[in-house]
């Protein structure tokens, strides 16, 4: 299986250098150091045509950064994001210059991700017009088609975003992405801001899209329930690294990494109502100063002396499944 959208050893570092004055004082006193945040640290991930991959992790684990790299909005410090073997973005003076329209992104906040001063029809048509995918004469039909596909009445194209409900706006965001005829979509917490009943409807729209358009979807979420409903495969991220990937069913049934197990046990379920509640204990450590060895060891119930010294690498634990944990190296 060759990947349509591939992340190849991608790392993203954010650097804050001290100012000149701070450095002068630093030289006199304690010494101001350059602060480096490794938001994403050597991640590889591939999505095939028509495949939905769920990217799961706690907030601050780097999953949104990874999603933006995949969508070409950010340029990784190391590694590459490729669509059909071609980079999705180039370096333009240190900033990302997106090179393809075939990867589109859907954003978390259906309120903030739409320009409040643009009619939604214009917002949907803007991209296709700018890239010659449609022309002025056909724009109206293009807009109507994508609006219908995501379950919106095309008659509302003349309205402004504030006249729609949250669920409708989420659909507008999807329509805007679809209007570019993408082959892959990165959805960053695309339903997180919605009520649960609305979430289910929007998720069904995603399922329809995958079925009808054969899209590869990278679905970023902190919600395992949502990912379980939608994804074929799941990738679990912790502090900038992917710790486990595999088919959704297998991973959920028998998690290979203690962190994955912790996340799954934290999901409230009807059949385990009386079971004790085991969220992952402790706080996520600061990415400014990640723990030595395995990043997860301070919170791990199975921690061994080796975990404090040596970072585990991803290795196959079952066909089609990888995890990075010393428990699997015995």
């Amino acid at each position: 299986m060759t990947a349509l959208l591939a992340l190849d050893h991608v790392s993203m570092r954010f650097v804050r250098r001290p100012s000149l004055a701070e450095r002068i004082v630093g030289a006199l006193a304690r010494g101001a150091k350059t602060e480096i945040v490794r938001a994403v640290d050597g991640v590889s991930l591939g999505l095939a045509r028509g495949e939905v991959v769920g990217l799961v992790g706690e907030s601050g684990c780097g999953k949104s950064t990874l999603g933006r790299i995949a969508a070409g909005l950010l340029l990784p410090t190391e590694g590459r994001a490729l669509l059909d073997g071609a980079p999705v973005a180039d370096d333009s003076d240190g900033r990302a210059a997106k090179r393809t329209t075939a990867v589109q992104m859907i954003f978390q906040d259906p309120f903030a991700s739409l320009n409040p001063r643009m009619r939604v029809g214009e917002a949907i048509a803007e991209g296709p017009l700018a890239h010659g995918l449609t022309d002025r004469a056909k724009a109206r039909d293009t807009v109507a088609a994508v609006m219908r596909r995501v379950g919106l009445d095309p008659a509302f194209a003349g309205r402004y975003p504030h006249q729609f409900s949250g669920g409708q706006r989420a659909r507008i965001g999807i329509a805007r992405a679809l209007a570019m005829n993408p082959r892959a979509i990165v959805a960053d917490e695309a339903v997180a801001a919605l009520d649960v009943s609305i979430q289910a409807q929007v998720l069904n729209t995603f399922l329809d899209l995958r079925r009808d358009l054969d899209l590869a979807i990278l679905f970023i979420s902190h919600d395992l329930g949502v990912v379980g409903h939608l994804a074929d495969r799941v990738a679990i991220m912790y502090l900038g690294r992917v710790v486990e990937t595999g088919p959704v069913g297998a991973v959920f049934a028998e998690p290979a990494h203690p962190y994955t197990r912790g996340l799954i046990e934290a999901v409230p379920r009807l059949d385990r109502r009386r079971a004790s509640f085991h969220p992952v204990r402790g706080e996520i450590p600061s990415p400014l100063d990640p723990p030595r060895g395995c990043h997860f060891h301070p919170r791990c119930p199975h921690v061994m002396p080796r975990c404090r010294e040596e970072a585990p690498v991803l290795r196959e634990v079952a066909p089609g499944r990888v995890a990075s944990c010393h428990l699997h190296e015995a």
Binding site: A71, G72, L73, A97, K98, T101, Q104, M105, F107, Q108, D109, A112, S113, L114, N115, P116, R117, M118, E126, G127, A130, H131, G173, R176, M180
Partner: peptide, 26 residues
């Protein structure tokens, strides 16, 4: 900082277009 600017750049649209059609009106 708002997502609609990121969304517009991510389509992608040219920086001048993002500034004039999205940033400036707001």
């Amino acid at each position: 900082r708002k997502e609609y600017i990121e969304a517009a750049s991510g389509i992608p649209l040219r920086p001048t277009r993002v500034v004039l059609r999205h940033l400036l009106p707001n």
